[in-house]
Design a protein around this nucleic acid. Structure first.
Lengths: 193, 193, 193, 193
DNA sequence: TATGAATGAGCCTTCATTCAT
DNA sequence: CATGAATGAAGGCTCATTCAT
C-alpha cells in the first residue's frame, strides 16, 4: 500500500531480460534485423511470450538494442574526447567502432539509422556531436586536414563499418583499409582529386 | 523427350527472360533483395509462374542479376584499362561504381558476395582482376602509393558502395567522401597509421 | 490437508473476491465478454494470479457475474411482485431490465444463457418464475391479453435487451420501442389501465 | 494484348471463392465474427492462403459476407414494396428477416452495423429506405399506427433478430413473439406506455 | 494467499514455390 | 510455354492459464 512505488524487477525477470537482450544481440549481430523473434527466444531459452512481455514489439527490442549500443559507442567517443591525445583519438575511435561493427550487424543499422525503420532518435545526435568534437580536436592538433567536414567523416565511418561487416575482413585487412582512410584524412595538401 | 538436345530458346521466352531481369533489376534496386518475387512479376508484366519457370528460385534470379551486373561492371573496368589514362582510371572507376551502387542496392550485394548467401562465384574473380590491373597501372604511373594492395582497394570499394547506398548521400557528399579515399590512396608518404 | 474442512474465507480474500467481481462487471459491461482477464485484474487492483485463484477460469468468472446479476434482476422482479401494482409491474420490470442491459453487456448474455457457452443453470428458472408471476398478475388485472404466454414475454425481454445493447439507443428511442411492445402485450380495446 | 480486358475468373477460383463464402457464412453464422479464419479455410476445404488470396483481410471477408446479405435482405424488402399488399408487406418482411437471422449471426451484425467495426457503409442506408417505404405504405393502408416512426421499427427489427439468434427460438415461439410486436404496431390507439 | 513472470497454443497475415488450367 | 490459383511454412503478436517467488 505504501513503501516503494516501483518495486525492483523480480530476480528471474531481470535474468530473463538480460538473457533476451544478449540473445537478441547475438542473433541480430549474425543475421541482421530480419532475424525472427522466435529465434531470439530459442537462443535465450525462453518462450516466445516472454520476449514479448519484455519487449512488446520486435521493434522495441531492436530499439532497446540499438540504444544500448549507441550509448556504448557514444561513451567510447566521449571518453576519448576527455582523455585521449587529440591527434590520435579520432583514429582510435574509428578503429574501435569498425571492429565492433565487424562483430555486430546492429552497429551498422545504428549508423544508417535514417535508412532503417528503427529510428534511435536523439541519441544519434549525441554520437555525431561526440565525433564532431573528436574531429575538431584532431584538426586543431593539425592531425586532420582543416577542410574535412563532419559529414564526410560520418559517411566514411558508416562505409567502413558496413564494409567490415559485409566483407568479413580479417584484422590485417581491417588495419590496412583503415590506414588508407586515415591517410586520406591526414594528408597535408596533396588532394587534387 | 526426344529430338534435339537443347533447342534454342523460343523468341517469346527469350523476351520474357529479358523483361524479368529488367524488372528484377529495378525492383531490387529500389527495395533490396527482400522485395517480393510477385512484385517482380508484376513489373515485368508476366505471371508469377513465368518468373519461376525462368529462374527456379528467387535465389537464382538474384544470382543471375548479380552476374549480369558484375559483367557490366567488369566490362567498365576493362574498358578503362584499355583506353583510360593510367593515373586517373582507377579513381574514375571508383566513382562510377559508387554512383551505380547508390542507385542500385543489388550492386552492393555483388561486392560482398562472399558474405551474402548469394554467391556469384568465379566472375567475381574477373572483377578483382580488372581492378587489380587498374591498380597496377595507377601505381606504375605514380598516382597511387606502391604499398597499397588489391584487397584493401576492394575493401574500400565495397565500403563506400555500402555507405553510399545506406546513407542516402547526395552527390556532393559522395564527392567529398571519395576525395578523402582518393587522397588516402595517393598521399605520398604520410601514412604512419 | 488436515484440520477443519472449510474455513471461512479470510477477510482480505473476501475483499479481493468482491473487488474482482466489481471490476469484472465494469469491464465486461463496457467491452463485452471478449475483454481480457488481465484488464479485469488491472481494474480490480490485484494481480492476475489472484483473479485465477478466485475463479479458476475466465468462464467461471463470467458465470459468477451472471449469477449475481441474475439474482439482482430476479430480486427486482420479486419485489415488484410483492409491492407493485399488478397492472403496471410487468411493464415497469421490462423497462428497468432493458435500461440495465443498455448499460451492461453482461445482462444480455444472461438472458440468452441457453445459447451462450456460459450457462447459468437453475437460477435462470427463478427469473422465469418471477416474470411468470408478474405476467399472471398483469393478466388477472386485465392489463395483458390472456393468450400471451410466458415464453414469448421472455423472448421479447431478451430481444429488446439485445437490441438496446447493440443498437446504442438513446432513452427516447428506448421509450418508443418499448411502447410498441407494451401495446402489443396489452389487450386490444380493453386497455383503460 | 487486346481482347477482353478482364478475363472471367478461372473456374476453380470461382468455385473456391464460392466455397469460402459459403463456409464463412456457416462459420460466422454459428460462432460470430470472432471465429477464426483458419476455421473458415478448414470448412471450405482449402488452405489458409487461399482464403487470403480471395479476401486479403479477415475484415474484407466479413464485409463481403455482410454486403451480400444486406443486398439479399434489401432486395427482399424492395420486392415486397413492389408486389406485396401494402397492409401485410411490412409484417411479411419482418418475419422473413427474423427467420434469416435465426440461422445467421451475421445478419444481426448487419443491423447493428454501427456497433461493429465492420461497417457496411451506404448499402445499409438502402435497407433503411426500403423498410421506410414498407412502413409508409402500411401506414397509408391503415395497417400500422400513424405515430410509429422508422427508427423504432428498425430498433424492433434488430431486437427480434438478436433475440431469435441468441435465444434459439423454435418456429412457434418466433411466430408468437412476432405476433406481439405486430399487435403493437397495429393496435388502434391504446398506447399509453 | 498474493504476485506477476513464464508458458505456449492460436490468431492474422505474407510469400516462395507448386501445379492444374 | 504462360497463367495465376493453391499451398503451407513462417512470422509477429495476444491472452488464458500455470507456477516460481
Amino acid at each position: 500500500m505504501f513503501g516503494d512505488a516501483t518495486r525492483p524487477m523480480r530476480a528471474d525477470a531481470q535474468r530473463n531480460r538480460a538473457r533476451i537482450l544478449a540473445a537478441a544481440e547475438r542473433v541480430f549481430a549474425e543475421a541482421g534485423p530480419e532475424a525472427s523473434t522466435e529465434e531470439v527466444a530459442r537462443r535465450a531459452g525462453v518462450a516466445i511470450g516472454t520476449v514479448f512481455r519484455h519487449f512488446p514489439t520486435k521493434h522495441e527490442l531492436l530499439r532497446a538494442l540499438l540504444k544500448r549500443l549507441l550509448r556504448q559507442v557514444t561513451d567510447d567517443a566521449a571518453e576519448l574526447v576527455a582523455y585521449g591525445d587529440p591527434a590520435g583519438a579520432l583514429f582510435e575511435f574509428f578503429g574501435r567502432l569498425v571492429e565492433r561493427a565487424a562483430a555486430n550487424r546492429a552497429v551498422v543499422g545504428l549508423l544508417s539509422a535514417e535508412g532503417t525503420d528503427v529510428p534511435v532518435g536523439a541519441p544519434l545526435g549525441s554520437l555525431a556531436d561526440a565525433v564532431g568534437e573528436l574531429l575538431a580536436r584532431a584538426q586543431r592538433a593539425g592531425a586532420v586536414r582543416a577542410e574535412i567536414r563532419l559529414d564526410e567523416v560520418l559517411a566514411l565511418l558508416e562505409s567502413v563499418c558496413q564494409g567490415a561487416l559485409r566483407g568479413g575482413w580479417d584484422s590485417d585487412l581491417r588495419r590496412r583499409t583503415l590506414a588508407v582512410v586515415f591517410a586520406g584524412l591526414r594528408a597535408p595538401a596533396t588532394d587534387r582529386g
